[in-house]
């Protein structure tokens, strides 16, 4: 059985169930790298130019780790466009080449170019090429592709309906994610904060210093872009930015546009990465919209030097600020502070 390695980084959080279903249907064994830890980050940092954004460095570290796990190949897709006319960051466009150049001792790469803009035929051919190493039977490959798509749709529906985060949903469906640290899962009478950003920023608890877990421990109910309806995200983009530009715009601009309008949401936190080109544009758009909306908003910029203390201080200050604003408006009983303290 061929062992296919999938790094638990970057687009893992968005597409893992799809990829897992595809390769398993073709008879391969899927091996996922363990969650990000310090050695992963250090392995990535050592191999890439400093300006490279942190999530890509982390991805490199995961590819290194997969070699140690003894896989036959590593799956590294080049996602160019998921819709015609959209544009993806250069790092995604050339991800396999980047890995080949920087992680020289990695296992052989299994590449695919996904460019919906090139048309259905090209996409189908690309998928068949991906399946060749496993089987020569095109019908078998087609079946695997359909199973993959089903798994993907199911994954998205699960998160939306049950209000789960990707790691939680992956865990539930037999995947290899790890659930967030949450000592207290309040879902009544607490502050509701929407966190928006790319999944590899929101759900990698190492690089974001367990952001979601900390918020939950403060008694906050956290909602995410994956929990919003797809049309809501599209509308959010149109409202804030006129038209969609980036492949991964929905989870930042779209989610921000959607949650900023939601009266049930008390505050929005955008989690972006220093050096992320798309984020530099989206963050500005979101910031301006938040100001117009007058909704409590905070942008958190992560990089490998992000100190935990600074992050914690900002989170505390933000939650405090929303709390005090609400009390100032008289819509919050003093007893709520007691409720939250009990949780901790």
């Amino acid at each position: 059985m061929i062992r296919v390695g999938i790094p638990q980084a970057l687009l893992y959080y968005q597409y893992y169930p799809m990829w897992q279903a595809f390769f398993q249907a073709l008879g391969a064994e899927v091996v996922v790298s363990p969650p990000t830890a310090r050695p992963t980050v250090e392995a990535g940092l050592a191999r890439m130019v400093a300006e490279t954004c942190l999530p890509v460095k982390v991805y490199g570290g995961h590819v290194c780790h997969l070699r140690e796990l003894g896989v036959d190949c590593v799956f590294v897709p080049a996602i160019r466009a998921t819709e015609p006319g959209l544009f993806n960051c250069s790092k995604f466009l050339g991800l396999p080449d980047l890995i080949r150049a920087t992680v020289e001792d990695s296992s052989p790469l299994l590449e695919i170019d996904i460019d919906v803009g090139q048309g259905r035929g090209a996409l189908q051919r690309a998928i068949y090429r991906l399946g060749w190493p496993f089987t020569w039977n095109p019908l078998h490959i087609r079946k695997a592709a359909l199973a993959a798509w089903e798994a993907h749709l199911g994954f998205q529906a699960l998160m939306r309906e049950r209000k789960l985060t990707p790691p939680e949903a992956i865990e539930g469906s037999g995947g290899e994610g790890h659930a967030l640290d949450s000592r207290c899962l309040p879902d009544t009478g607490s502050l509701v904060i929407a966190v928006v950003g790319h999944p590899y920023c929101l759900y990698d608890s190492y690089i974001n210093h367990n952001l979601l877990g900390r918020l939950r421990r403060m008694g906050v109910r956290v909602i995410t872009p994956e929990m919003a309806p797809a049309q809501g995200l599209e509308m959010g983009i149109r409202r804030l930015a006129r038209f969609k530009y980036w492949v991964y715009e929905a989870e930042v601009t779209g989610a921000a546009g959607y949650y900023l309008e939601d009266p049930a949401v008390d505050g929005v936190i955008a989690v972006v990465v220093f050096g992320c080109g798309p984020d530099s544009t989206m963050l500005d758009v979101v910031q301006r919209a938040a100001r117009r909306q007058e909704k409590p908003y905070m942008g958190l910029v992560l990089d490998e030097h992000t100190g935990e203390a600074g992050l914690v201080t900002r989170l505390e200050a933000f939650v405090d600020m929303i709390d005090r604003r609400k009390s100032a408006r008289g819509s919050w009983e003093a007893g709520s502070m007691e409720k939250r303290r009990e949780c901790a």
């Binding site: 203390a309 600074g310 201080t313 900002r314 005090r324």
Partner: peptide
């Protein structure tokens, strides 16, 4: 109106 509504920190 006497309440903090926004802030930013530079700890980098």
């Amino acid at each position: 109106d006497g309440v903090a509504v926004d802030f930013a920190m530079n700890t980098v």
